[in-house]
Amino acid sequence: MDLLLIVEKETYRIRERATRDRPRERLLRLGPAVLTDVELLAILLGSGTSGESSLDLAGRIIQGGRISFKGLRELSLERLQQFKGIGPAKAVILSAALEIGRRLQEDPGGKQVRIRQSRDAFLLLKSRIGHLEHEEFWVICLNSANKVLCTHQLSKGGITGTLVDVRLILKKALELQAVALVLAHNHPSGNLKPSRADQQITRKVKRAANLMDIRVLDHLILNGEEYYSFADEQLL
């Protein structure tokens, strides 16, 4: 057999095998469950950089950076773009995909979530704000059966604090005809002890809500793994 033909056939087999082993083709043949985290991330990235495939780029982020999907979800768009090879377009795609995963994790299957205790509220919010590096203030609006009508971000601040407008809290509650509220914010420092400002805003919101027959059931301070409950500590 002609040597050139042998080389061409071998080259074709190598290319064919390489194509079959690419993440996208493996997913088409075998389904998503068999793919590694690196392969799934490579599919989302779509392309790599000059001299680096999407698979290499994904491996550098997950393995080299020692970061999981959970860790990626907690990164801002700006932080995602600090990885070499991740521009605004790739960062937006990753952020959207990870947010879909977070929402699926929280999805109660079409049923309204009921807040029976402080931990229920913590579990509802921890994936949203528990690991953030800046402070955010949220409110959970509830109906008369303590079922969640909405979870709403009220403000976004810096590392040490965020401003809260009581009028915006009540406006949201009245729009939804809520009869009860749970307040929540995170402490990026990890220290769950309420500050004097935390206690003051809790009292201020409670007084204003009482005038409209809306109950403030709790105020949570949380990080990724733990929380502090004003109700549990009998501070309401």
Rank of each mutant, 00 (worst) to 15 (best):
E10H: 11
R20S: 13
L98T: 03
L35S: 05
G158S: 02
H152C: 02
I86M: 13
I221W: 03
G190R: 13
R73H: 09
D232E: 14
G190W: 03
L3F: 06
K84S: 09
I159Q: 12
D21H: 10
Y227M: 14
L142Q: 02
V164F: 08
K171F: 07
D232G: 10
D2I: 05
Q199Y: 08
V38E: 09
G110V: 06
L77I: 13
L104N: 12
N146F: 07
R207A: 03
T151S: 00
R196T: 06
L181W: 00
I169Y: 01
S50H: 15
R29I: 02
V216M: 03
E52Q: 10
G65S: 00
N191K: 09
L236N: 06
R116S: 10
R167E: 12
L154V: 06
G87A: 01
T151E: 06
R116N: 13
K204F: 04
R79F: 13
V166L: 02
H219C: 12
D56E: 07
A184Q: 00
S53T: 12
K193I: 02
A91S: 10
E99W: 04
F83D: 06
L27V: 14
S50R: 03
E106A: 13
C150W: 02
L176Y: 03
K90N: 07
E39L: 02
R66A: 05
K111Y: 14
S68V: 05
W138Q: 03
F69M: 08
D2V: 05
A231I: 03
I43N: 11
R196S: 09
K172H: 05
D213C: 05
Q105Y: 13
L170S: 09
L192F: 09
E52T: 08
D37L: 08
L211C: 01
L44S: 08
I86C: 11
K70P: 09
G157D: 06
S118W: 07
G64Y: 06
L98I: 11
Q234G: 07
I115V: 13
I93M: 13
S47D: 06
E8L: 07
S155D: 04
Q153I: 09
A173S: 06
S76K: 04
